[in-house]
Design a protein around this nucleic acid. Structure first.
Length: 506
RNA sequence: CGGGGCGUAGCACAGCCUGGUAGUGCGCACGGUUUGGGACCGUGAGGUCGCAAGUUCGAAUCUUGCCGCCCCGACCA
C-alpha cells in the first residue's frame, strides 16, 4: 500500500498536467483549460482580448461558412463598413447611445511622437487631437444607417438586405475567453424594409436561421423567444433571441435578432417614396451571432476528457492513427489505408492521417480526444492480418473493431449518427434541467441548482428586477412555443397569462 | 470599481519566512532503445527572478511605489 501511495504522490504533479480539472468540481476552470488545451484560443498580452488559434479559428470558419450560406440563401449580401464611428453618429439614436456609451473605446488622437524626456518612449502628440472623437464600433447600426440614407430613395430600393463579418469592441469590466471578450468577431445583419410586417418577418426569419444553425450544426438545442424590455437591445423595439442551457445549468444567449421599428430610420432620416409617391420612413432589423458561439459549443458538449465537437463543425472529422514498430509496417499500413482516405475525402469528409513519429499512439489518442475529433481510426499489423480497423467514437468514448472493407461508408453514416447523438444528449440534458415552478419557495430553491425555470410573470419591470435582485435570475426570454395559460406570478402573485424562462445567465 | 490570489526558463511551479553559487518537472535539441491508451535512457541548450527606487558589503529573498495577469462580485453579446 505504502508503495502505491508514495508512487502516487510522487507522480501526482506529472499526471496533473495531463488531466483536465473536473467539470463537476470547477466548471470555469474546466472551461478555461479546455479552451487552452484543445488549442482553441489563449489570452493575449492585451487585456480582455484573446488570440484565436488556428484550430479554434478553423471551427469559427466552419460556423461562418454555414451561416453565410444560410444568409445568402435568404437573399442577403455581404458588405463592409468602417471600424470607426464618429461620436455624433452614435448620439443620433438616443436609446442606442445610452446603451453603449459606457463600454466604448474612443479614439482622440491620430499621431504619436518621440518622448523628448525619455529616450525610446512614445507619447501622444497633442497637436494631433481629432476635431471629433471616433468610437471603435461596439456595433454598426450608426454607420450603416447613416449610409443607408444615401442608398434608399424609392420603394424599388427595398428591401436592403446586408450582412457584414467584422470585429467589434465593447470595453467589458470582466472578460472570459470567447464568452465575453473586449474585442470579438461576429456577423451583423442590417436590413431595411418598406413595411413593418416585412421587417418583423425578417427579424423572425433570421432568428429561425440562428436556431436552425444552433441545432443542426452546433447540435445545441435552443429556446426561441422575445426579450423583456430590460433585456432588449439598445435602440430596438423588439429583441428576439435564442437561449441555450450550458452544462453547469446557466443560460447563454447565443444569438439575437432585433426589430428596430423606424427608430434608426428616423434618427438617420432614411426615407423612401412609396408607390403612392409619398415619403415614409423605412423599417429596420439587425441580427448577430458572435465568437461567443465558440464558448457555447465548448460548454454545451464537452466532458472531462476535453472538447466534444459535432461532426459538422469539426475541422478534422476523422483521424487515423497508424500503430507500428518499424518503417516497413507503416508502409504496409499506409498502403492499406490510402484508398480508405481517398474514399472518405471523396465523400466530403475531412481526414487526418497522423504519421508523426514523434508521439506514440497512446499520446495521440489522448490528444485527439482533447481536441474533440469525432471519429478516430486505429490500424496496426494485427488489423492488417484480420482485415479489421478500430473505430473510436469521441461522443461515447467507445471503441469497436470493424471490417476494413466498406469502412468509408460506415463512417459516413457514423458521423451523421454522432451529430444526432450529441444533439439528443444536449436536448435530454436541457429537458432534465427545465422545471415548471409555481411557488416562490420552489423558485428560490431551484435557481440555486441551475437550469431553466418556466414560471409565471406578471409582465412588470418591478417584479423582474426584484426577482433578479433576490436570486440573480433573469428572464431569458418570453418563449414562443409556450402555450398561454392563466396563472399567478411566482413572485408577486399577480395574474399572468404565460410562463417565461428564468435562469442565471452568462 | 471592491475582495482575494499570482508574477522566477516556452509551460507548471519550488526557493523568499531566516539575504550570500537560481533550482525541479514537463516541453525543446541531439543520439539510442521503444510504439494496440499520454514510453524510456543518456547528453545538452535555455533566466535582465514583472518594472523602478530604497536598505545592505551583498537582494529572487527585506521596504516602498508602480505595472500586469487570473479568480470571485457589481455591468454586459
Amino acid at each position: 500500500m505504502s508503495h502505491f501511495a508514495l508512487s502516487f504522490l510522487f507522480h501526482t504533479k506529472n499526471y496533473m498536467s495531463k488531466i483536465l480539472p473536473k467539470r463537476s468540481e470547477n466548471y470555469s476552470e474546466w472551461y478555461n483549460e479546455i479552451v487552452k488545451r484543445a488549442d482553441l484560443a489563449e489570452n493575449s498580452a492585451v487585456r480582455g482580448c484573446m488570440v484565436i488559434k488556428p484550430y479554434g479559428y478553423a471551427i469559427w470558419e466552419k460556423m461562418q461558412r454555414a451561416l453565410d450560406d444560410m444568409f445568402k440563401e435568404t437573399g442577403h449580401q455581404n458588405a463592409y463598413f468602417p471600424l470607426f464611428v464618429p461620436k455624433s453618429f452614435l448620439e443620433k439614436e438616443e436609446g442606442h447611445a445610452a446603451g453603449f456609451a459606457k463600454e466604448c473605446a474612443v479614439v482622440t488622437h491620430y499621431r504619436l511622437k518621440a518622448d523628448p524626456n525619455e529616450k525610446g518612449k512614445l507619447i501622444v502628440d497633442e497637436n494631433s487631437k481629432l476635431e471629433e472623437e471616433l468610437i471603435v464600433r461596439p456595433t454598426s447600426e450608426a454607420v450603416i444607417w447613416n449610409t443607408y440614407k444615401t442608398w434608399v430613395q424609392s420603394w424599388r430600393d427595398l428591401p436592403l438586405l446586408i450582412n457584414q463579418w467584422a470585429n467589434v469592441v465593447r470595453w467589458e469590466m470582466r472578460t472570459r475567453v470567447f464568452l465575453r471578450t473586449a474585442e470579438f468577431l461576429w456577423q451583423e445583419g442590417h436590413t431595411a424594409h418598406a413595411t413593418e410586417e416585412e421587417a418583423r418577418s425578417e427579424t423572425r426569419q433570421m432568428l429561425d436561421v440562428y436556431a436552425t444553425f444552433a441545432e443542426n450544426f452546433m447540435a445545441m438545442p435552443v429556446i426561441k423567444g422575445a426579450k423583456t424590455e430590460t433585456e432588449r437591445f439598445a435602440g430596438a423595439v423588439d429583441t428576439l433571441c435564442i437561449e441555450a442551457l450550458m452544462q453547469d445549468g446557466k443560460a447563454l444567449q447565443s444569438g439575437t435578432s432585433h426589430f428596430l421599428g423606424q427608430n434608426f430610420a428616423k434618427a438617420f432620416d432614411v426615407q423612401f417614396v412609396n408607390k403612392e409617391n409619398t415619403l415614409e420612413y423605412v423599417w429596420g432589423t439587425s441580427w448577430g451571432v458572435s465568437t461567443r458561439l465558440m464558448g457555447a459549443l465548448v460548454m454545451a458538449h464537452s466532458d472531462d476528457n476535453g472538447l466534444v465537437l459535432p461532426p459538422r463543425l469539426a475541422p478534422i472529422q476523422v483521424v487515423i492513427v497508424p500503430i507500428y514498430r518499424v518503417e516497413e509496417d507503416l508502409q504496409k499500413i499506409s498502403e492499406r489505408i490510402e484508398p480508405v482516405i481517398k474514399e472518405l475525402k471523396a465523400g466530403g469528409i475531412s481526414v487526418k492521417y497522423d504519421t508523426d513519429d514523434k508521439y506514440k499512439p497512446g499520446y495521440k489518442f489522448a490528444e485527439y480526444e482533447l481536441r474533440g475529433v469525432p471519429v478516430r481510426l486505429g490500424i496496426g499489423m494485427r488489423d492488417l492480418e484480420n482485415g479489421t480497423i478500430e473505430v473510436a467514437r469521441r461522443d461515447q468514448l467507445s471503441k469497436e473493431s470493424r471490417p476494413i472493407e466498406g469502412i468509408a461508408n460506415y463512417i459516413k453514416d457514423l458521423l451523421g449518427e454522432i451529430q444526432q447523438n450529441i444533439y439528443q444528449k444536449a436536448l435530454k440534458f436541457r429537458e432534465q434541467n427545465t422545471f415548471r415552478v409555481d411557488t416562490w419557495e420552489e423558485f428560490q430553491a431551484q435557481i440555486e441548482k441551475g437550469g431553466f425555470i418556466l414560471a409565471h410573470w406578471d409582465g412588470t419591470v418591478e417584479t423582474e428586477e426584484a426577482i433578479k435582485a433576490e436570486t440573480k435570475a433573469t428572464i431569458r426570454c418570453i418563449p414562443f412555443d409556450e402555450a398561454e395559460e392563466d396563472g399567478m406570478d411566482v413572485y408577486s402573485g399577480n395574474p399572468s397569462k404565460q410562463r417565461v424562462v428564468f435562469a442565471r445567465a452568462y
